[in-house]
Amino acid sequence: MSGIALSRLAQERKAWRKDHPFGFVAVPTKNPDGTMNLMNWECAIPGKKGTPWEGGLFKLRMLFKDDYPSSPPKCKFEPPLFHPNVYPSGTVCLSILEEDKDWRPAITIKQILLGIQELLNEPNIQDPAQAEAYTIYCQNRVEYEKRVRAQAKKFAPS
């Protein structure tokens, strides 16, 4: 494992614990031996107030490669969400998460999670990743928002 990646992720964890947006979660997972795995984080993004996503808490896994922060983490909703920019596998399609697009090593975990929260309610229809959600979003916004509200209710924190 890269010392650069681990040191950056340790800084990220410290900064997150000191200050993070209300309702968001970002925690490194534990290895079988109980030690912390900084390369694999369990996160959760709350649906934004005043949107059909409100009330939901959407679980996301963030996986970092050894060359982080040169390369972005892979962000994957578990379980996958109904959304035009979420692949059926759950992987998020967002330009700041793509090395050859808008990724920059200075982007923080907090910025990534806030960017994904923004994307939930403002899909990028130029870059669809899920045919069904994309089609319904474009053709029947009322039905799309109904499905999103049902999903938010399903993923409401207990």
Rank of each mutant, 00 (worst) to 15 (best):
A5V: 13
A5C: 15
A5I: 15
L6T: 10
L6E: 10
L9F: 00
Q11T: 14
K14F: 06
A15M: 06
W16T: 04
R17V: 00
R17I: 01
H20M: 00
P21M: 06
P21K: 06
F22M: 01
G23V: 00
G23S: 11
A26T: 00
A26Q: 04
A26R: 03
A26M: 02
V27H: 12
V27K: 13
V27R: 13
P28K: 06
P28D: 05
T29P: 04
T29F: 15
N31T: 08
P32S: 14
D33Y: 03
D33M: 05
G34C: 08
T35M: 04
N37M: 11
N37P: 03
L38W: 08
W41K: 05
W41E: 08
C43N: 11
A44K: 15
A44I: 11
P46I: 09
P46Y: 07
G47P: 01
K48V: 05
K49C: 08
K49Q: 10
G50S: 12
G50V: 08
T51G: 06
G55K: 09
G56S: 02
G56M: 07
G56E: 01
L57F: 08
F58T: 06
L60V: 09
R61K: 13
M62P: 04
M62W: 01
L63S: 14
K65W: 03
K65T: 15
D66C: 13
D66Q: 11
Y68H: 08
P69H: 02
P69S: 02
P73N: 02
K74L: 15
K74W: 04
K76L: 14
K76E: 15
K76D: 15
E78T: 10
E78R: 14
E78I: 10
P79S: 14
P80C: 06
P80F: 12
P80R: 11
L81H: 00
F82T: 04
H83P: 02
N85V: 05
V86W: 03
P88Y: 07
G90I: 02
V92W: 04
C93Y: 02
S95P: 01
S95F: 00
S95N: 14
I96E: 00
L97A: 11
E98A: 15
E98D: 15
E99A: 12
D100Q: 11
K101Y: 15
K101I: 08
D102L: 04
D102Q: 01
D102H: 14
W103M: 05
W103C: 00
R104M: 03
I107H: 11
T108L: 15
T108H: 14
I109N: 02
I109H: 04
Q111V: 14
I112H: 12
I112Y: 01
L113W: 04
L114G: 12
I116W: 02
I116G: 05
Q117L: 09
E118I: 10
E118H: 12
E118P: 05
L120R: 03
N121T: 12
N121I: 09
E122I: 08
P123A: 06
I125R: 03
I125L: 10
I125M: 08
I125F: 10
Q126P: 04
D127H: 03
P128L: 00
A129V: 00
A129P: 03
A131K: 10
A131I: 04
E132M: 09
E132N: 08
E132Y: 07
A133L: 07
Y134R: 00
Y134H: 05
Y134K: 04
T135W: 12
T135M: 10
I136V: 10
Y137C: 04
Q139V: 03
N140C: 04
V142C: 13
E143G: 09
Y144L: 01
E145N: 15
R147Y: 08
R149Q: 13
A150C: 10
A152N: 09
A152W: 04
A152S: 08
K154W: 06
K154P: 01
F155K: 06
